[in-house]
Simulated assay, not measured.
Amino acid sequence: METDQGAARYSSPTLDADTSFLLARASAMASAVGNRAVADLGLKVRTYSVLALAVEVEPSQRELAERLRLDPSQIVALVDELEARGLLERRQDPSDRRARIVAATPAGAALFGQARARIEDAQRDLWAPHSAPEIEALRAMLRRVAFGEPR
């Protein structure tokens, strides 16, 4: 993690007041922490996210792309990688023959359980300087921004 001295050295009044920049920087920091937490499991934050959705909701590839805000070609590559490792499988969507559902295999669900515990520990460390009410307020605000959820 960056020291306060390093942050002050590169301080910019413009960027320090730019919400989008601050969100991008916080996202990059959280992704780096998450990537380190699951690296030895052969995952990154993106593959962890795909695995989480496959375990919890079994989305179509199109739904994965929409939820994760990734290009469909990126989703195909992520699903291919996890499928090759035996962690996911594609199934035909019974309500739409053209669509494929992405579901976790038992091995994928087990790996997700390990990864989730590591991600939670890493995030707990990252957010430790903040109170529980501050963290929940931030989550609520980010859900509104990310998904348009009402107050």
Rank of each mutant, 00 (worst) to 15 (best):
E2R: 14
T3W: 00
Q5L: 06
A8Q: 07
A8E: 05
A8I: 00
S11C: 05
S12C: 12
P13E: 10
T14A: 14
D16H: 09
D16E: 12
A17W: 10
T19V: 14
T19Y: 13
S20R: 07
L22F: 03
A26Y: 01
S27D: 09
S31V: 11
G34D: 10
G34Y: 08
N35W: 02
N35R: 01
R36C: 04
A37N: 02
A37H: 01
A39F: 08
D40A: 00
G42Q: 03
G42K: 00
G42D: 04
G42A: 06
L43N: 04
K44M: 08
K44N: 15
K44E: 12
V45I: 10
T47D: 02
Y48Q: 02
S49N: 12
V50G: 09
L51F: 07
A52I: 00
L53P: 08
E56C: 13
P59K: 04
Q61E: 15
L64F: 14
A65D: 06
E66R: 15
E66D: 14
R69I: 02
L70F: 11
D71P: 12
D71V: 09
P72W: 05
P72K: 07
S73H: 13
S73G: 13
S73F: 14
Q74R: 15
I75E: 05
I75P: 05
V76F: 05
V76L: 08
A77S: 13
A77K: 13
L78R: 04
V79H: 10
L82H: 05
R85D: 08
G86L: 09
L87D: 06
L88G: 03
E89Y: 05
E89T: 11
R97V: 15
V102L: 04
A104V: 04
A104Y: 01
A104H: 01
A104K: 01
T105E: 01
P106A: 13
G108L: 03
A109Q: 03
A109L: 05
A115Q: 00
A117N: 14
R118M: 08
D121Q: 15
A122P: 07
A122M: 07
Q123Y: 10
L126E: 09
W127A: 07
W127Y: 09
A128R: 15
H130F: 15
S131K: 00
A132Y: 12
P133D: 14
I135Q: 11
E136I: 12
L138A: 11
R139G: 10
R139Y: 11
M141K: 08
M141A: 12
M141D: 07
R143H: 03
R143I: 03
R144M: 10
R144G: 15
R144A: 14
V145Q: 04
F147Y: 14
F147L: 12
F147K: 03
G148S: 02
E149P: 01
E149T: 14
